[in-house]
Design a protein around this nucleic acid. Structure first.
Lengths: 338, 338
DNA sequence: GTTGGCACTCGTGTCGATAGAGTGCTAACG
DNA sequence: CGTTAGCACTCTATCGACACGAGTGCCAAC
């Protein structure tokens, strides 16, 4: 267990490093944060804390840098405290409401806002579509066996996908199929009606059983897939951070962001039911995330489930980032509830 | 007018610089490209050509670098020649066909392919929607005056947008409105039927005249807007080029790519009716493009009009880039025609 | 337990010398 | 008159030497 003063030293080093980006030396800490102690005292504490795994030195004659263990301590302390909402909250809320063009463009917009406000990469994931109420289902013949499946979900969320059916159906048949599915599914979640649909929809359409079944299966695939729809925004802002002046580090981030599927999986995996979750550096098992932190906050609004997140350097301003993320998640809740 | 030898010198310098990224000196040119002439002769030619604006020197004791004027000469010569299609063409065509999930995801995919194959930034724009045949129009009540406008165009292209109508309409009325518009517009281009719609659709719906009119106006806005839908892909690849090792240069490119609207406008503005257009450095009036080249190729397939493009450094491998762009534009044609 | 002093380490920035690449100019050559 | 060889000149990049400063670890004194 750490003493009170040791805690203060850890917090000071983390805070100082986050502020300046430079390794923190004993002199600085003594002068700025712990006036009661001389640099020598701090040096002793630092040596102990380094042994305990809270700090490391890039080279012998440099100050100390925090390890993930130190960041963890720091972040946990922040999470205890009450945070003040950022001043721009109202402005954001207004601009989100104004830009309301369906949830997808809202999420794209919020991911950009997140990136811009924090100088991190903003992400927004939309998932658990099978829990969203269905409003309408249509099929449109595109030619041959190819059919456009058009799904309108609660809140104006539109999904569409080209599907192939085992045999060619006329547009009239497809309309009939769409009407029947809509009648049954309207106002319900997909998970509630999937099995019903598979059993009852097709009275009078027995000849097309195979095709109808295939259509339902494809809908299921569309709605039920693990993959969330992912929006990434504001990647350019992290270039202004000194941490990414090195082109190699930035490239790591970029190639991470390119792998949309892996990223979406990670977002799903590391988010918690409610409240902000912070995953620091090597706490994250994902390759490439060793030097990055991941902040996630689910949006608990009705309708679609969304997760907002931030990806940034270990030494991001956690306090600011967390409160911005919280504020925007709340804004999103409001918009989703309508 | 340039002599035969002067042309050769210009081509050699451009080619050598594209190959190595280093300023080309008289010795190198004499030894590699113009064995018949001594370095001294080349020096004389180079001095003349510099005066004519084809070269410049970063400093007195360095070799020559090509100006846009020299690149232009080089590219024009390439465009004359017959180009061989890249070996991967068949593979690309297959993977595009396999990934067919509507034109938008195809374009996103192609933009990534472009970036990957050329180490430039790939772009793909979708425009001139008003020339695409309409397949179906639906309206869905989302609550209050807000209505989801759903437009299915030829080729499975889906567009949707939340619109606000002056007064609240029932879903039945909206269905009726959608049906009428679909009947008239189906199989026609929007530009052909817009005026007809504004005049005739509303018999029997006179009470809702204002709302119907507004709906049409909003459709018009959606289809007729100048803005193309733009896909940018593979931006991370240019980081592997020596030209963008400098973080500042890369940031220029990134901030350019962020301005989607300006970029879309530029793509529209600089593309030509058919064939590849090459805009080199300061030939492009757009701010930030001084050190970049823009290659564009329209896709002439029926249905939606698409433009594929590449943004890369001045010293990109024009020959390879042009043939890759041509090949992928052709692949896209095939897919669009179906 | 805390502190001041001191020797030691290591990275950074500066200076000067050097090597190398490339030019421009001039004079000679065919 | 065009071409070429030779030569002096310029500019950059690189390398080693060196001083400087920040920071540590350790020890002895308080």
């Amino acid at each position: 267990m750490l003493t009170e003063r040791q805690l203060e030293v850890v917090f000071s080093v983390v805070y100082e490093y986050i502020r300046t980006g430079e390794p923190a030396g004993s002199r600085t800490i003594s002068k700025k944060y712990l006036r009661g102690c001389s640099p020598a005292t701090i040096r002793n504490e630092m040596a102990d804390l380094e042994e305990m795994g809270y700090f490391y030195q890039p080279h012998t004659s440099a100050g100390r840098l925090p390890t993930s263990k130190a960041y963890r301590l720091y972040v946990d302390a922040i999470m205890q405290r009450r945070r003040t909402a950022p001043a721009e909250t109202e402005e954001w809320r207004r601009s989100i409401r104004e830009s309301r063009q369906g949830i997808e463009s809202i999420l794209a917009y919020i991911s950009r806002l997140l990136g811009q406000a924090t100088n991190c990469v903003g992400v927004a994931a939309l998932s658990a579509l099978e829990e969203v109420q269905i409003q309408r289902v249509s099929f449109l013949r595109l030619g041959g066996n190819t059919v456009l499946l058009l799904l309108v979900l609660d809140g104006g969320l539109v999904h569409h996908s080209n599907i192939s059916l085992p045999c060619e159906l006329s547009q009239d048949t497809l309309d009939e199929l769409g009407r029947r599915i809509t009648t049954i599914a309207e106002g319900h979640q997909w998970s509630e009606v999937r099995d019903v649909l598979l059993r009852y929809v097709f009275e009078g359409l027995e000849r097309m059983w195979d095709s109808c079944r295939e259509a339902i299966v494809q809908m299921d695939a569309l709605l039920n897939r693990r993959r969330s729809r992912l929006f990434v925004g504001g990647a350019q802002h992290i270039l202004s951070l000194p941490d990414f002046q090195d082109i190699g580090k930035f490239q790591t981030v970029l190639s991470l962001l390119e792998q949309e599927h892996a990223l979406a999986d990670m977002v799903e995996r590391y988010s918690v039911k409610d409240g902000v979750s912070v995953t620091i550096g090597d706490e994250n098992a994902e390759a490439g995330m060793e030097q990055l932190s991941l902040l996630l906050s689910p949006s608990s609004g009705s309708g679609a489930r969304a997760i907002l997140g931030l990806i940034g350097p270990l030494r991001m301003d956690y306090e600011k980032s967390i409160s911005i993320l919280e504020a925007l998640a709340e804004d999103l809740d409001d918009v989703l509830v309508q």
